[in-house]
């Protein structure tokens, strides 16, 4: 129960950030012709910011269903890597039901929370975060569709950095203790910026390419020694 409560607390900034992002996503969904209920349903079932964004654009373009499947795979392919990593964070003896449920709710943010737990993530901790943040995501989308442009643009702009603030709160503290992580973060910032400005790759492709390239680089350059004392 303690883990569950801790999860709710750490889920607050996620829910807050989700609400803002989902709200702006709702505006795109409205342009694609979705009703607030359809937006609510999509966000409840899909739980993916980049993925839903790509999907709403595809719906607007009235693409064939198989193409929707391909777009969904490509815009969410980083979850394959995260799913691999998360598989190592769930206790080997934990019930399969936890794996099936945590897989359903595997997002960048819940993932970030899960990997910050040592040595294994208690599924109850994740459920705590999910039970607050997932409704924020779904309701935010529906409200975005419903009230589109009522919120002042300044508020939307301020809310939209919430997610990145949270990412920073996760990656910076370990980086201040481990120089290897710090170096990789700098490499990521620079290469991500260059690819986004000077290549034709989409945002999700950049995420895939750099995740594989920079993580491999890290594994080759900075192999970890603490094999016995597994963190």
């Amino acid at each position: 129960m303690d883990s569950f409560k801790r999860g709710i607390k750490d889920g607050l900034p996620i829910g807050f950030g989700y609400f803002a992002v989902a709200f702006s996503l709702g505006i795109i969904a409205a342009q694609a012709g979705l009703t607030p209920f359809q937006g609510f349903l999509t966000s409840l079932l899909v739980n993916a910011s980049a993925g839903e964004n790509a999907a709403f654009i595809a719906i607007k373009e009235n693409v064939p269903y198989f193409q929707m499947a391909i777009i969904t795979i490509v815009s969410n392919i980083r979850y394959i890597l995260m799913s691999f990593a998360l598989s190592q964070k769930i206790h080997p003896k934990a019930s399969m039901i936890h794996r099936l449920l945590l897989g359903f709710f595997l997002t960048d943010e819940y993932f970030a929370l899960a990997v910050s737990q040592d040595p294994y993530c208690d599924p109850m901790y994740s459920y705590g975060a999910i039970c607050f943040a997932a409704p924020c995501w779904a309701i935010g989308t529906a409200l975005g569709i419903l009230m589109g442009n009522i919120l002042p643009i300044r508020i939307v702009s301020a809310l939209s950095v919430a997610l990145y603030g949270m990412f920073l709160a996760i990656i910076i503290p370990p980086a201040s203790k481990n120089r290897h992580i710090a170096i990789l973060i700098i490499i990521c910032f620079v290469s991500s910026f260059l690819l986004s400005r000077f290549s034709a790759l989409s945002e999700s492709m950049i995420t895939i390419v750099l995740t594989i390239a920079v993580s491999s680089l890290g594994a080759v350059l900075f192999p970890r020694k603490d094999e016995t004392n597994e963190k």
């Binding site: 890597l81 990593a85 960048d108 996760i170 990656i171 990789l184 973060i185 290469s191 995740t211």
Partner: peptide, 11 residues
């Protein structure tokens, strides 16, 4: 896999 989360979130 240890580095994946930091890399993905940074990117």
């Amino acid at each position: 896999l240890y580095y994946v989360p930091y890399v993905t979130l940074s990117v």
